[in-house]
Design a protein around this nucleic acid. Sequence first.
DNA 1: GCCGGCAAAAAAATCGATTGTCCTGAACAA
DNA 2: TTGTTCAGGACAATCGATTTTTTTGCCGGC
Lengths: 366, 366
Amino acid sequence: MVFTGGTNVNQSFDAVPTTLKELAARAKVHPSTISRVVNQDPGLRIAAATRMRIEALLRETEYRPNGVARGLKLRQTMVLAVVIPDITNPFFGGLFRGIEDGAAPRGYQVLLCNTDGSPDRQRAHLHSLIARRVDGVILASSFLKDPAVQWLRHQRIPYVLVNRFSDEGLDPFVGSDDVTGSRLATQHLISLGHVRIGHLAGQPTVSTGVLRRRGFQAAMAEAGLPARPELQVESGFVEEGGIRGTERLLAMSQPPTAVFAVTDMVAVGVYTAARRMGLRVPEDIAVIGYNDIPLAGRLIPGLTTVHVPIHEFGSAAARVLLEQIETGHVTPRQVVYAPQLGVRGSTVAGADKRNVAHFATNGRGE
Amino acid sequence: MVFTGGTNVNQSFDAVPTTLKELAARAKVHPSTISRVVNQDPGLRIAAATRMRIEALLRETEYRPNGVARGLKLRQTMVLAVVIPDITNPFFGGLFRGIEDGAAPRGYQVLLCNTDGSPDRQRAHLHSLIARRVDGVILASSFLKDPAVQWLRHQRIPYVLVNRFSDEGLDPFVGSDDVTGSRLATQHLISLGHVRIGHLAGQPTVSTGVLRRRGFQAAMAEAGLPARPELQVESGFVEEGGIRGTERLLAMSQPPTAVFAVTDMVAVGVYTAARRMGLRVPEDIAVIGYNDIPLAGRLIPGLTTVHVPIHEFGSAAARVLLEQIETGHVTPRQVVYAPQLGVRGSTVAGADKRNVAHFATNGRGE
DNA sequence: GCCGGCAAAAAAATCGATTGTCCTGAACAA
DNA sequence: TTGTTCAGGACAATCGATTTTTTTGCCGGC
């Protein structure tokens, strides 16, 4: 690393952004008058000459009211907060874009908080956010029976849970029907003739983990197949857990011929582990994931997965939140999307050639 | 989509978070006294009994000062802002984590703004951020001679440019040496015997685009090879441009045998286009990228690329920014990292087997 | 000549916290 | 007895805007 001191410009921050009071002195009117012009007060009666003078001054100085002072007086900050486990996970990247795309047109900006799955960090972030008086919170990192969510309920601040819930039906929520989705996934594997099917089951502390496992078990039972406990392995929700879980599954005397992973990232772990062990997907082991992140379509073979509208999750969450903010009421509205099966080459050899759809990111920039 | 009204709890937000004044009334002291206890005013002289009474009250009510009021009085919001093209691009995901990891331990939270590469949106975001009185801005979406950056300089607010600069040396900056990096990449291709080398060259409006192209041209010249203009194609910085650019390159009568892509995402586009045209990487076309995003190591074959410390970019940017904030001075400090070549299978067949390093994300959660 | 009525704009209160200054007793010295 | 001194808190100004309330002229009407 090269480290340069740079040219010694060394400016200090002394220039002050203009205040209403200063403008008032310049225009020889009272600050309140300017404020009304700025905010286009409907009941404002003002002499044409004065208005012109003020408007000219506003243009000249490019005056913009101090948002902090405004926030204090109006009791609204025009800031939303998003709390997620980790923005480098593509699922949350897409989710965030959905949220911002829903919030920005209405003038809101968005604070992003990563918890890394730590309840402590989640709690700390939430406390800060409430103290900051953000106008609303979108929480996508909650646990089952999450104390932080219970606390949030009592703060009487608009909030929405996304993807994961804490206590079913008690909170405003946007997500999909995880049981149905995982049943779809499992049925797909069953329909292909798989009998020994493994499940990488997330975590029992998170709703998506529990529900997707439940759907898996339901589908197995409906098909008259045994859902053997040793074939259901906790994996967390990211790649590393998928690798470990796959190693456990494939070390069994009679390993499964197919694996349903609780998320696409876990499914990526299955690919990695299979590759290390010299197994082919889907011939030696079929894999199905959940979420349909952009990466799923890029893997070779393409990852069969349960598609959920990630970006829509975000924009719907923003809608639900803004509705609460604007009406001042919290109806625990639930928006639940129906998941859909997306078949690619990780379960059906050759599917990738038929199914040429690419799930490219809309990414810009570097 | 299923849409449920939810149980009609319909609570309104009437509960008010406690204020200093209310606490003062309860403790029968003046608000200022409580404030001093909360902030552990060093020069505070207070009777033990009074202190106990106040502290008990603080614990009981879980009082936390209103951040907006505090921000107004103290002229600092403890909020930083990050402006980037698109968070769904893995490069920026990693960058953001670096920033947050650097800022959170010091008590800052971070606003995230996506511009989608639009100067208008960038300008709009910056205006809002300044009006909000964020304590500092990290800008990773700037253009060459960017009017928005020039404007930012005059706002006398702490800021740092990351990865891209606007006017070399004029602003605080964290990034890597793009010319060196792209020279490394190009020399690598040359050393493998490639003579007709194509370059997917980003955009001439962005410093990384210009500098990486310059490094490419320099390496070609140093090797006595012609850097033919028709082999240098503008591609933007994401996959779509890589696809289009590759189509143009490969449609030539004498197509290049190797391509240096300005970013890994553009290189992904090369893979996609090559695949569609039935060409193999690296046998028919060698590919090298830039940045070493996690995806690069997952592609098959693995993508040879110029490694830069993405997470470090973020944490260094946070450091530089916080230094400015805390000292109150803006030294246009430049932190420049040396890029390194990372060879994988996209240029050297078989390299993936030797080079088993995986660049997994640290992702948590869904 | 006085008053009502209205246009135009100034005043003042307020949001919630921070912080420099001032006030009140009590203890102690002269 | 009369000051001093200092501990312990109260007061008040301030940050920058918004919004309700008042004030100030000026006009016409009677």
